Amino acid sequence: MLRKFFNKARKVAQDDQGITAVEYAVLGALVAVGLVAAVPSLLAAFTAAFARIASAISGTP
């Protein structure tokens, strides 16, 4: 089964035709999943950074 996957992947990599709409959809879905996974941790980091900035400006520890 793994051999079939690698053979198919090799054929796709060697294909010199343009990207189809299905491939764009798959790529878009992967980007969306990555963004959904990254947003919570980025939000927490930004919140902490702005809290440190606000406390530095106001002079509170």
Rank of each mutant, 00 (worst) to 15 (best):
V12L: 07
S58N: 15
R3T: 14
E23V: 08
A44Q: 07
I53C: 02
F5L: 15
S41W: 10
V31G: 09
N7V: 10
G18K: 11
R3A: 15
A32K: 05
D15Q: 03
L35E: 04
P61T: 02
L2H: 11
F6V: 10
L35H: 01
A56D: 05
A37M: 10
A51K: 04
F46M: 05
F50E: 04
Q17H: 12
A29Q: 06
A37C: 07
A25I: 10
A48S: 09
D16I: 07
V33C: 08
A13G: 06
K4F: 06
R10E: 04
A13Q: 13
P61F: 00
G59T: 08
I53N: 03
V22Q: 13
Y24H: 10
S55L: 12
F46I: 06
A29R: 04
L27S: 14
L42E: 12
T60Q: 03
A54G: 08
A13M: 11
F5Q: 09
D16H: 12
E23R: 12
S41T: 13
G28M: 05
R52K: 07
M1L: 04
R3V: 14
G59D: 13
D15E: 06
F6L: 15
V36I: 15
A51R: 05
P40D: 07
R52N: 12
A13L: 14
V26F: 04
A49F: 06
A37E: 00
S58E: 15
Q17S: 15
A51C: 03
L42K: 07
T20F: 09
K11L: 09
L30D: 14
A44W: 02
Y24F: 12
A54L: 00
K8A: 08
D16S: 14
V39S: 09
D16C: 03
A21S: 14
G34R: 03
R52P: 03
A49P: 00
V31I: 15
Q17F: 03
A45D: 01
F50G: 02
G34Y: 01
F5K: 05
A21K: 13
F50L: 08
A48H: 01
R52F: 00
L43W: 06
V12K: 11
S55P: 01
I53A: 11
A51S: 12
S41F: 13
A48L: 01
Q14S: 09
L27N: 10
T47Q: 01
A13S: 13
K8Q: 08
A51N: 11
L43M: 07
L2A: 14
F46N: 03
G28Y: 00
A44F: 00
I57N: 06
T60A: 04
G28H: 03
S41D: 08
S41Q: 13
S58T: 15
R52C: 05
S55M: 02
A44E: 06
I57V: 15
M1R: 11
A45C: 00
P61Q: 02
A51Y: 04
L27I: 12
R3I: 12
D16Y: 01
A37K: 06
V22N: 10
V36M: 11
L35V: 13
G18D: 15
V22M: 11
N7M: 10
A45F: 00
Y24T: 06
K8Y: 06
G28K: 02
V31M: 14
R10K: 13
V22T: 14
R3D: 15
K8W: 03
A9V: 11
K11F: 00
G59Q: 11
